[in-house]
Design a protein around this nucleic acid. Structure first.
Lengths: 119, 119
DNA sequence: CTAATATATTCCATTATTGGCATGTGTCAA
DNA sequence: TTGACACATGCCAATAATGGAATATATTAG
Protein backbone atom coordinates (compact mmCIF):
# COMPACT_ATOMS: atom_id res chain seq x y z
CA UNK A 1 0.00 0.00 0.00
CA UNK A 2 1.40 3.34 -1.04
CA UNK A 3 0.52 6.63 0.48
CA UNK A 4 0.76 9.98 -1.15
CA UNK A 5 3.63 11.71 0.56
CA UNK A 6 4.03 14.75 -1.62
CA UNK A 7 1.42 17.40 -1.38
CA UNK A 8 1.03 20.09 -4.00
CA UNK A 9 2.36 23.44 -2.90
CA UNK A 10 0.01 26.23 -1.99
CA UNK A 11 -0.91 27.32 -5.50
CA UNK A 12 1.50 30.12 -6.26
CA UNK A 13 -1.55 32.34 -6.37
CA UNK A 14 0.54 34.74 -8.33
CA UNK A 15 -0.25 37.84 -6.33
CA UNK A 16 1.24 41.29 -6.05
CA UNK A 17 3.70 40.12 -3.41
CA UNK A 18 5.13 37.51 -5.74
CA UNK A 19 5.06 39.85 -8.70
CA UNK A 20 7.35 42.39 -7.06
CA UNK A 21 9.63 39.77 -5.55
CA UNK A 22 11.65 39.58 -8.76
CA UNK A 23 14.24 42.30 -9.17
CA UNK A 24 13.79 42.48 -12.94
CA UNK A 25 10.11 43.03 -12.53
CA UNK A 26 10.75 45.82 -10.06
CA UNK A 27 13.14 47.32 -12.60
CA UNK A 28 10.39 47.21 -15.20
CA UNK A 29 7.93 48.89 -12.86
CA UNK A 30 10.52 51.53 -12.06
CA UNK A 31 11.02 52.18 -15.76
CA UNK A 32 7.29 52.51 -16.21
CA UNK A 33 6.97 54.92 -13.32
CA UNK A 34 8.10 57.73 -15.61
CA UNK A 35 5.33 56.97 -18.06
CA UNK A 36 4.02 54.67 -20.73
CA UNK A 37 6.65 52.60 -22.54
CA UNK A 38 6.72 50.18 -25.45
CA UNK A 39 8.20 46.74 -24.90
CA UNK A 40 11.17 47.58 -27.08
CA UNK A 41 11.95 50.65 -25.00
CA UNK A 42 12.04 48.55 -21.85
CA UNK A 43 14.27 46.02 -23.56
CA UNK A 44 16.71 48.80 -24.45
CA UNK A 45 16.53 50.57 -21.11
CA UNK A 46 17.14 47.49 -19.02
CA UNK A 47 19.28 45.40 -21.36
CA UNK A 48 17.07 42.39 -21.03
CA UNK A 49 16.03 40.04 -23.81
CA UNK A 50 12.73 40.74 -25.48
CA UNK A 51 11.07 37.46 -24.49
CA UNK A 52 12.26 37.99 -20.95
CA UNK A 53 10.58 41.38 -20.80
CA UNK A 54 7.39 40.08 -22.40
CA UNK A 55 7.17 37.29 -19.85
CA UNK A 56 7.69 39.59 -16.91
CA UNK A 57 5.14 42.00 -18.32
CA UNK A 58 2.71 39.13 -18.51
CA UNK A 59 3.15 38.38 -14.83
CA UNK A 60 2.77 42.03 -13.94
CA UNK A 61 -0.28 42.23 -16.14
CA UNK A 62 -1.91 39.23 -14.51
CA UNK A 63 -1.80 40.89 -11.12
CA UNK A 64 -3.00 44.17 -12.58
CA UNK A 65 0.17 46.15 -11.92
CA UNK A 66 0.45 47.16 -15.57
CA UNK A 67 -2.01 47.70 -18.39
CA UNK A 68 -1.42 47.43 -22.08
CA UNK A 69 -2.57 49.53 -24.99
CA UNK A 70 -1.93 48.73 -28.64
CA UNK A 71 -0.59 51.43 -30.89
CA UNK A 72 0.17 50.11 -34.34
CA UNK A 73 2.41 47.13 -33.94
CA UNK A 74 3.65 48.31 -30.61
CA UNK A 75 2.29 47.57 -27.20
CA UNK A 76 2.46 50.44 -24.78
CA UNK A 77 2.50 49.43 -21.15
CA UNK A 78 1.65 51.71 -18.31
CA UNK A 79 1.82 51.39 -14.57
CA UNK A 80 -1.32 50.80 -12.55
CA UNK A 81 -0.13 51.94 -9.13
CA UNK A 82 -3.51 51.45 -7.52
CA UNK A 83 -2.85 47.72 -7.59
CA UNK A 84 -0.04 48.19 -5.11
CA UNK A 85 -2.77 48.59 -2.56
CA UNK A 86 -2.52 45.11 -1.00
CA UNK A 87 1.12 45.85 -0.37
CA UNK A 88 0.37 49.24 1.14
CA UNK A 89 -2.26 47.80 3.39
CA UNK A 90 -0.09 44.94 4.54
CA UNK A 91 2.71 47.34 5.32
CA UNK A 92 0.36 49.67 7.16
CA UNK A 93 -0.24 46.97 9.75
CA UNK A 94 3.39 47.35 10.76
CA UNK A 95 3.41 51.10 11.01
CA UNK A 96 2.24 50.81 14.59
CA UNK A 97 4.91 48.30 15.50
CA UNK A 98 7.45 50.49 13.79
CA UNK A 99 6.29 53.61 15.62
CA UNK A 100 6.31 51.74 18.92
CA UNK A 101 9.90 50.79 18.37
CA UNK A 102 10.78 54.35 17.48
CA UNK A 103 9.08 55.51 20.68
CA UNK A 104 11.07 53.06 22.75
CA UNK A 105 14.23 54.19 21.02
CA UNK A 106 13.28 57.75 21.84
CA UNK A 107 12.67 56.90 25.48
CA UNK A 108 16.01 55.14 25.63
CA UNK A 109 17.84 58.13 24.20
CA UNK A 110 16.11 60.46 26.65
CA UNK A 111 17.07 58.16 29.49
CA UNK A 112 20.70 58.25 28.40
CA UNK A 113 20.49 62.00 28.24
CA UNK A 114 18.91 62.22 31.72
CA UNK A 115 21.62 60.02 33.19
CA UNK A 116 24.24 62.28 31.68
CA UNK A 117 22.88 65.31 33.47
CA UNK A 118 24.54 66.51 36.68
CA UNK A 119 22.62 65.74 39.89
CA UNK B 1 32.96 22.12 -28.98
CA UNK B 2 30.29 22.74 -26.43
CA UNK B 3 29.11 26.07 -25.28
CA UNK B 4 27.48 26.86 -21.99
CA UNK B 5 23.90 27.63 -22.79
CA UNK B 6 22.43 27.77 -19.32
CA UNK B 7 23.31 30.74 -17.25
CA UNK B 8 22.96 30.78 -13.52
CA UNK B 9 20.02 32.85 -12.40
CA UNK B 10 20.54 36.19 -10.73
CA UNK B 11 21.65 35.00 -7.31
CA UNK B 12 18.45 34.72 -5.36
CA UNK B 13 19.78 37.48 -3.20
CA UNK B 14 17.24 36.48 -0.63
CA UNK B 15 16.00 39.93 0.18
CA UNK B 16 13.05 41.38 2.01
CA UNK B 17 10.94 41.31 -1.14
CA UNK B 18 11.42 37.58 -1.50
CA UNK B 19 10.97 37.00 2.20
CA UNK B 20 7.48 38.47 2.26
CA UNK B 21 6.45 36.91 -1.03
CA UNK B 22 5.45 33.70 0.74
CA UNK B 23 2.02 33.76 2.34
CA UNK B 24 3.10 31.56 5.25
CA UNK B 25 5.93 33.89 6.06
CA UNK B 26 3.56 36.83 6.05
CA UNK B 27 1.32 34.86 8.39
CA UNK B 28 4.26 34.36 10.71
CA UNK B 29 5.12 38.05 10.67
CA UNK B 30 1.49 38.88 11.37
CA UNK B 31 1.51 36.54 14.34
CA UNK B 32 4.66 38.17 15.63
CA UNK B 33 3.21 41.65 15.24
CA UNK B 34 1.37 41.17 18.54
CA UNK B 35 4.62 40.41 20.33
CA UNK B 36 7.36 37.91 20.94
CA UNK B 37 6.45 34.27 20.31
CA UNK B 38 8.12 30.90 20.74
CA UNK B 39 8.35 28.59 17.75
CA UNK B 40 5.84 26.21 19.27
CA UNK B 41 3.32 28.98 19.69
CA UNK B 42 3.58 29.88 16.02
CA UNK B 43 3.20 26.21 15.10
CA UNK B 44 -0.01 26.05 17.12
CA UNK B 45 -1.38 29.39 15.99
CA UNK B 46 -0.87 28.75 12.29
CA UNK B 47 -1.27 24.97 12.14
CA UNK B 48 2.00 24.51 10.31
CA UNK B 49 4.56 21.80 10.91
CA UNK B 50 7.42 22.64 13.23
CA UNK B 51 10.18 22.22 10.64
CA UNK B 52 8.16 24.33 8.24
CA UNK B 53 7.98 27.16 10.75
CA UNK B 54 11.65 26.86 11.64
CA UNK B 55 12.64 27.08 8.00
CA UNK B 56 10.50 30.10 7.34
CA UNK B 57 11.86 31.75 10.47
CA UNK B 58 15.32 31.12 9.14
CA UNK B 59 14.55 32.96 5.93
CA UNK B 60 12.97 35.82 7.83
CA UNK B 61 15.96 35.88 10.13
CA UNK B 62 18.44 36.03 7.27
CA UNK B 63 16.88 39.22 5.97
CA UNK B 64 16.66 40.66 9.47
CA UNK B 65 12.88 40.76 9.69
CA UNK B 66 12.91 38.75 12.92
CA UNK B 67 15.33 38.31 15.77
CA UNK B 68 15.72 35.41 18.12
CA UNK B 69 16.30 35.20 21.84
CA UNK B 70 16.90 32.00 23.78
CA UNK B 71 14.94 31.37 26.94
CA UNK B 72 15.62 27.97 28.37
CA UNK B 73 14.98 25.47 25.65
CA UNK B 74 12.68 27.80 23.82
CA UNK B 75 13.49 30.32 21.13
CA UNK B 76 11.53 33.50 21.29
CA UNK B 77 11.23 35.34 18.02
CA UNK B 78 10.30 38.95 17.69
CA UNK B 79 9.54 41.20 14.78
CA UNK B 80 12.12 43.69 13.57
CA UNK B 81 9.86 46.08 11.67
CA UNK B 82 12.68 48.47 10.85
CA UNK B 83 13.87 45.96 8.27
CA UNK B 84 10.74 46.58 6.26
CA UNK B 85 12.38 49.80 5.25
CA UNK B 86 13.50 48.72 1.74
CA UNK B 87 9.89 47.84 1.07
CA UNK B 88 8.65 51.16 2.41
CA UNK B 89 11.13 53.07 0.35
CA UNK B 90 10.38 51.18 -2.81
CA UNK B 91 6.70 51.76 -2.32
CA UNK B 92 7.26 55.44 -1.60
CA UNK B 93 8.51 55.92 -5.14
CA UNK B 94 5.03 55.09 -6.33
CA UNK B 95 3.20 57.39 -3.96
CA UNK B 96 3.58 60.20 -6.46
CA UNK B 97 2.28 58.12 -9.34
CA UNK B 98 -0.54 56.98 -7.13
CA UNK B 99 -1.42 60.50 -6.07
CA UNK B 100 -1.31 61.69 -9.66
CA UNK B 101 -3.82 59.04 -10.59
CA UNK B 102 -6.02 59.99 -7.67
CA UNK B 103 -5.86 63.63 -8.79
CA UNK B 104 -6.88 62.70 -12.28
CA UNK B 105 -9.70 60.60 -10.89
CA UNK B 106 -10.74 63.58 -8.80
CA UNK B 107 -10.70 65.87 -11.83
CA UNK B 108 -12.75 63.36 -13.72
CA UNK B 109 -15.35 63.14 -11.00
CA UNK B 110 -15.54 66.92 -10.75
CA UNK B 111 -15.96 67.11 -14.51
CA UNK B 112 -18.84 64.62 -14.34
CA UNK B 113 -20.41 66.70 -11.59
CA UNK B 114 -19.99 69.92 -13.57
CA UNK B 115 -21.62 68.37 -16.61
CA UNK B 116 -24.55 67.29 -14.50
CA UNK B 117 -25.22 70.85 -13.37
CA UNK B 118 -27.90 72.90 -15.10
CA UNK B 119 -26.59 75.56 -17.47
C1' DC C 1 1.86 39.97 -51.86
C1' DT C 2 6.31 40.10 -49.48
C1' DA C 3 9.53 41.59 -46.28
C1' DA C 4 10.50 43.75 -42.13
C1' DT C 5 9.30 45.05 -37.54
C1' DA C 6 7.31 44.44 -32.85
C1' DT C 7 5.77 41.48 -29.61
C1' DA C 8 3.98 37.06 -27.69
C1' DT C 9 4.45 32.28 -27.00
C1' DT C 10 6.36 27.65 -26.86
C1' DC C 11 9.76 24.34 -25.66
C1' DC C 12 13.31 23.05 -22.76
C1' DA C 13 17.29 22.84 -19.42
C1' DT C 14 18.48 24.47 -15.02
C1' DT C 15 17.94 26.07 -10.64
C1' DA C 16 15.19 27.48 -6.61
C1' DT C 17 11.72 26.66 -3.36
C1' DT C 18 8.59 24.15 -0.68
C1' DG C 19 7.07 20.59 2.36
C1' DG C 20 7.40 15.98 4.55
C1' DC C 21 10.01 12.99 7.22
C1' DA C 22 13.80 11.67 9.95
C1' DT C 23 17.31 12.98 12.82
C1' DG C 24 20.56 16.01 15.36
C1' DT C 25 21.34 19.27 19.24
C1' DG C 26 20.68 21.62 23.32
C1' DT C 27 18.09 22.17 27.73
C1' DC C 28 15.41 20.88 31.56
C1' DA C 29 13.27 17.51 34.88
C1' DA C 30 13.29 13.42 37.66
C1' DT D 1 22.23 9.95 33.93
C1' DT D 2 18.16 9.32 31.36
C1' DG D 3 14.29 10.78 29.17
C1' DA D 4 11.30 14.32 27.58
C1' DC D 5 10.82 18.57 25.38
C1' DA D 6 11.81 22.44 21.98
C1' DC D 7 13.81 23.50 18.09
C1' DA D 8 17.10 23.22 14.00
C1' DT D 9 18.87 20.79 10.20
C1' DG D 10 19.56 17.44 6.47
C1' DC D 11 17.77 14.78 2.83
C1' DC D 12 14.54 13.96 -0.71
C1' DA D 13 10.62 14.41 -4.04
C1' DA D 14 7.80 17.45 -6.45
C1' DT D 15 6.99 21.54 -8.50
C1' DA D 16 7.58 26.42 -9.67
C1' DA D 17 10.13 29.92 -11.90
C1' DT D 18 13.73 31.72 -14.82
C1' DG D 19 16.14 32.42 -19.08
C1' DG D 20 17.70 31.07 -23.79
C1' DA D 21 16.52 29.90 -28.39
C1' DA D 22 13.33 29.30 -31.83
C1' DT D 23 9.00 30.20 -33.63
C1' DA D 24 4.28 32.15 -34.08
C1' DT D 25 1.38 36.23 -34.73
C1' DA D 26 0.15 40.69 -36.00
C1' DT D 27 0.99 45.08 -38.21
C1' DT D 28 3.11 48.11 -41.32
C1' DA D 29 6.01 49.30 -45.42
C1' DG D 30 7.26 48.77 -50.10
Amino acid sequence: MEYIRWVARAATTSDVFNAIAEAHRRDILDALSTGELAVGAIVNDLSLSQPQVSKHLRVLSEVGLVRCRAEGRRRLYRLEPAQLRPLREWLAKYEQAWNDRMDRMDDYLKELQRQGEPQ
